[in-house]
C-alpha cells in the first residue's frame, strides 16, 4: 500500500468513489425506512476511502485527510451519540425519545432515530478507516529483518 497502482486503476477509482460515498450517506439518512441504518452506512463510507488508499498510495491520502482530522471526527461522532442520549433527561428518564414523531413513511419520523444514525455512521466509518491506515504505515527493512514505522517521504533513507 505504499506506492500507487497503474493509471487505469487511478482513473477508475477517482470516478467511482464519489458515488459510493453518496450511496453510503443515503443508506444512513433513510435508515428508518429502508433496510440499513447507521452500521452498514458507516462501513460503506469507510470502504470508499479504502479504495482511494489502495489506488493512490498512502502519502497522498494522508495529505488530504490526516490522522489528526479523522481522530477529531471520531470523537465528534461519539460525543454526538452521547448527547442525544443525555437529551432524554428533559423528558424524565435517560434515553427517552422526546422529539416530535411525524407521519409514517416520511423522512422526518421516529423521533431521535435520524440523529443517532448520523452519529453512529460517523463514528464507525472513521474508526475502521483509522484502523486500516494504521496497519499500512509499517515498513520492513530487509537487511536485518527489522520493522520501522514512517509517515513522510523524508524518513526513507
Amino acid at each position: 500500500m505504499n506506492k500507487g497502482m497503474s493509471e487505469i486503476v487511478k482513473t477508475i477509482s477517482k470516478i467511482v468513489s464519489p458515488f459510493i460515498i453518496i450511496f453510503g450517506i443515503s443508506v444512513i439518512f433513510y435508515g428508518h425506512l429502508t433496510p440499513g441504518g447507521g452500521f452498514p452506512g458507516g462501513v460503506i463510507i469507510s470502504a470508499s476511502f479504502v479504495i482511494l488508499l489502495l489506488a493512490y498510495g498512502k502519502e497522498k491520502i494522508l495529505s488530504k485527510l490526516s490522522l489528526y482530522k479523522s481522530d477529531i471526527l471520531h470523537d465528534i461522532g461519539a460525543l454526538m451519540f452521547l448527547s442525544v442520549a443525555l437529551a432524554g433527561f428533559i423528558g424524565g428518564t435517560f434515553f427517552l425519545n422526546i422529539f416530535d414523531k411525524g407521519k409514517l413513511f416520511s423522512l422526518w419520523s421516529g423521533g431521535n432515530l435520524i440523529f443517532s444514525n448520523i452519529a453512529i455512521g460517523l463514528k464507525v466509518g472513521t474508526s475502521l478507516f483509522l484502523g486500516i491506515i494504521l496497519l499500512s504505515m509499517v515498513r520492513i527493512v530487509y537487511k536485518e529483518n527489522k520493522i520501522e514505522f514512517y509517515e513522510k517521504k523524508e524518513d526513507i533513507k
Binding site: G37, F39, V124, G131, L135, V138, K146, I147
Partner: peptide, 26 residues
C-alpha cells in the same frame, strides 16, 4: 447487527498484535 462490526474490530486488533510478534521473532 452489532456483533458483526465488533468482530471486525477484533480482527484488526489481532492483526496489529501479530505484526508486533513478527517484528520481535522474525
Amino acid at each position: 447487527l452489532t456483533s458483526i462490526v465488533i468482530d471486525l474490530s477484533t480482527i484488526c486488533f489481532l492483526a496489529a498484535l501479530s505484526i508486533r510478534i513478527y517484528e520481535k521473532y522474525g
